[in-house]
Nucleic acid binder design. Structure first.
Lengths: 172, 172
DNA sequence: CGATATTTGATATAGTCTATAACAATTATC
DNA sequence: GATAATTGTTATAGACTATATCAAATATCG
């Protein structure tokens, strides 16, 4: 056995079905992950999927996706910006941001207002309901989602992880 | 200024166009990222996109995606497995795995062989060409891709990062 | 044995996310 | 004032993901 525990079971959550073959007929042994365990990109993607999954679960009462939550956060911190600025900051292409905003606006979470300076652009702002939903979402994220990660990694490690990810996202 | 450097510029790579406004008309200041900088999921996704992007660049001569590379790696380490086993291990749904294998098989990187034990299933195996391509891909990944991450983070940090990501992917 | 259920690979299909081209309205540039 | 650039938008295409369904083969169990 040359593979670490983390390497062998870091794979399928759906395979954790209570009854593992205790000793009997060798069945299908777990597959060898090999170099896959050392591929940063592989673990990155698996971890990202898990984290998003948990985010959706934690914030399910408010029906917000991670992307929608990030938009609300950004609108709150940056009043008076237009669609292009918000979309660019989040790495969303302008054409794809239109439908996203349509969804948020139809739920009365934000509004588009024609700018008086530049009548081409739409100034984006949170509605009162948007601010309220954002406040509740922040609490859920902090108390359920991030708290769970803190519990798993420990506060110091969580910060170290965040720093490294930001470094990769920013300087890679 | 309460935001860290990493927080403010961890955003748009496309915005790094040589000429920043030196001092003149304040223009459009960078947006405040706010709590977004502390959202693990956000940094996770941004980092994952960057890492995949770099992977594709490094391994471009071989025309392999991260997913295809992971399939070849797994086939090499686990000869004699069928489609369902490989797909499950990688978190790929069986229906979606069919087209993936079609692509790899059409490039003569792997083959499907009807199992004699169970004539429903296809045993998957790398071809000689598949093994050769995989060997070259491993070298490119190690010397260009992972080496770059090692340079950015430092070997110790890279291992620590990998451990935490595996932990999240496995136990979250 | 034989009827029923399960598994495997496959197809069809739908939904989401991402990416590019093009357009009208508006503004910037020279 | 003519030309170029920008903004929001639509249309569209591609990649990835997800579910239902099917025929062939196997497993299960009376």
């Amino acid at each position: 056995m040359t593979v670490s525990k983390a390497a062998t079971d870091a794979v399928k959550p759906s395979r954790s079905n209570g009854k593992e073959p205790v000793d009997g007929a060798a069945e299908n042994a777990a597959l060898q992950m090999g170099e896959l365990s050392d591929l940063l990109g592989y673990s990155l993607k698996r971890a990202q999927l898990k984290v998003f999954e948990d985010f959706l679960r934690c914030v399910a009462p408010l029906q917000l996706t991670p992307a929608q939550f990030s938009v609300l956060l950004l609108l709150d911190k940056n009043p008076g910006r237009n669609q292009t600025e918000i979309a660019n900051t989040l790495g969303i292409l302008r054409p794809n941001f239109v439908a996203m905003l349509d969804a948020l606006e139809s739920r009365d979470l934000c509004t588009r207002v024609r700018s008086t300076n530049d009548r081409r652009s739409h100034i984006l702002m949170l509605t009162d309901k948007g601010r309220a939903v954002l406040a509740r979402a922040k609490k859920l994220v902090a108390s359920k989602h991030e708290a769970r990660l803190n519990e798993l990694l420990g506060p110091a490690n969580r910060v170290a992880l965040l720093d490294m990810l930001s470094k990769i996202a920013g300087e890679f």
